[in-house]
Structure formats: structure tokens, C-alpha cells
Design a protein around this nucleic acid. Structure first.
Ligand SMILES: [Mn+2]
Ligand SMILES: [Mn+2]
Ligand SMILES: [Zn+2]
Ligand SMILES: [Zn+2]
Lengths: 129, 129
DNA sequence: GTCGTAATGATAACCATTATCACTATCATG
DNA sequence: CATGATAGTGATAATGGTTATCATTACGAC
């Protein structure tokens, strides 16, 4: 990425201004709504470029990739399979034990992704009622 | 799944006879090679049906879903980003801590997927050489 | 055997993502 | 300025894994 164009700046600002996990289409629609229309291909390229520079983070879900602010500490995600809510969490010991597990297999870790599925607090209450 | 048809039995036998993590296309090709041609749509449906009955397991990777035998204890995966090798591991403490992390957020866990990325033993040696 | 229905398989459709390509914006240099 | 050189844009085609459609076939119950 040689140029942080207005389009890419708009993507970055949008993501930095929220705690959401955005997919490409949501980003495009939000920018259109904000009066800054942008081509969907540009969104995809912009997201990839911004991520490669560490300006945003992403999680690869089953169907699509979602992007979020990079100025948060590393964390993993719990996803409610009922309402789609994404809860963040971090657990230092889990991280450490992952390193240990990798070392045991002679694996040189470069990254990981832990996704937990289930029912969020709100949906669990709904099911009980 | 009301019927364990010959096609589905063939898929199940194929997967149970190996330790590989198969994608749909690999299954179809293997069965064709084994003299038991099968439609690709039937493979997809068969895999989904077998999984829903707990006869096989799956992991959802970024690009595609891969299936494996279900008669192994629960485990997670390390994937070599250089050669594609998939290493399996399990860590009881990590599992326990995941439960704890979920409980802390009021989340009722139904499943999880931990994928670690990096370089396998073999590829790490190759890089050093 | 007949009927109801699950499963098959060829193929179309779907959908997120990537590639293509003509065009535009930006920057360095003469 | 003018001129390139080239990174980026955006409309759109293409890709690839997966799912839907639908006519046909295989099973099982009666
Ligand atoms: Mn997050
Ligand atoms: Mn496995
Ligand atoms: Zn929920
Ligand atoms: Zn490797």
C-alpha cells in the first residue's frame, strides 16, 4: 500500500469508529450511506491493504471474513449461533498453552484463531423463559 | 438421514480408512478412482448427512470444509502454511479454560474450533537449511 | 406389485471473493 | 506546467466452493 487514499481512509475511519466486526458488503453500504460511495472491489482491496499494514484486524468465519479495529489487544471470539452476537475474550494462559502445544509438535507458530460457538447471555435467557 | 446408501457407505468407509482431512472434491475423486463413481452433489449431501449423525467430523477452514473420522477423541489442529500439513493436538487444560472463559461471559458453549497456523517441523528444518 | 418418499446426479444458481481492464489520481522530474 | 510512470479505482467478468432444482432411481412398508 503506497497510498492511503480517501477511500482507504474512509474504510479505516469507519472501522476505527466502532467495535463492530464488519464484512466487505457492510463497509460498502455504510460508506454509501455516509455519502462516500465506493466500489465493492475497492472495499475488498482496501481491507486487504489495510490489514497487511496492521491497521485493521480480521477474523475468517465460515462464510465470510470480518474486519475490526487493530488498536485492541489480541483477543479471540465467541459467536452466538442464535443471534450472531460476537463476544470478545482473551485468556493469557490459553495463549501460553497454545505455544506449549505447538512446541511439543515441533511447530513454529505464526498465528492462531480460536472461535467458540454457543448461546450468548441474552439468548440463553430467552431460551429459558 | 434415513438411509445409509451405498454411496454414503462408500464415503464413510473411505474416510474411516484413513487419517486424512478430506474435502468434497478429494472424496469424489477417490471414489471415482476406486471404481465407485459418485456425483459431486451426492458427496456434499452425503458428507453433511454423515456429519449430522456424528459419523464423521469436520473442520471449517478458510476456503473449504474438510472431513475426517469421528472415532478419534476431540482434538484441534495446527496447519502448516507452507506445505499444508495438518497436525492434530489436544490439550485438556485449554479445553477447561475455554469453558471457564465462556462461563465468565455468560456464554453457553456448544462447540469451538481452535486452529493454529505456522510451519511444521519438516518445513522449519527446510527453512533453516 | 404399488405407493410414498429418500436419495441420486446432472446442472443451474448462489455468493463471497478475486481478476481484468480501461480510466483516474498522485507524485516525481525536466 | 507538461509529461510520464504507476498506484488505485470501479464496473464487471470470472472463479470456486457450496447449495438448490428437478427429473429419475432406489428402498421400504403395506
Ligand atoms: Mn474482535
Ligand atoms: Mn483432525
Ligand atoms: Zn445471542
Ligand atoms: Zn509444512
Amino acid at each position: 500500500m503506497q497510498r492511503l487514499t480517501v477511500q482507504r481512509q474512509a474504510i479505516l475511519d469507519l472501522i476505527n469508529a466502532s467495535n463492530r466486526h464488519w464484512d466487505a458488503d457492510e463497509v460498502a453500504r455504510a460508506l454509501v450511506d455516509a455519502g462516500a460511495p465506493i466500489g465493492i472491489a475497492t472495499v475488498y482491496r482496501g481491507l486487504a491493504a489495510l490489514e497487511s499494514f496492521g491497521l485493521i484486524d480480521s477474523i475468517q468465519l465460515a462464510d465470510k471474513k470480518r474486519y475490526e479495529r487493530a488498536d485492541k489487544a489480541h483477543h479471540d471470539h465467541m459467536i452466538c449461533t442464535n443471534c450472531g452476537h460476537i463476544e470478545e475474550f482473551s485468556h493469557d494462559t490459553i495463549e501460553t498453552l497454545q505455544q506449549a502445544a505447538a512446541a511439543k509438535k515441533g511447530f513454529k507458530l505464526t498465528g492462531h484463531q480460536l472461535v467458540m460457538f454457543g448461546f450468548c447471555k441474552k439468548c440463553t435467557q430467552g431460551l429459558d423463559a
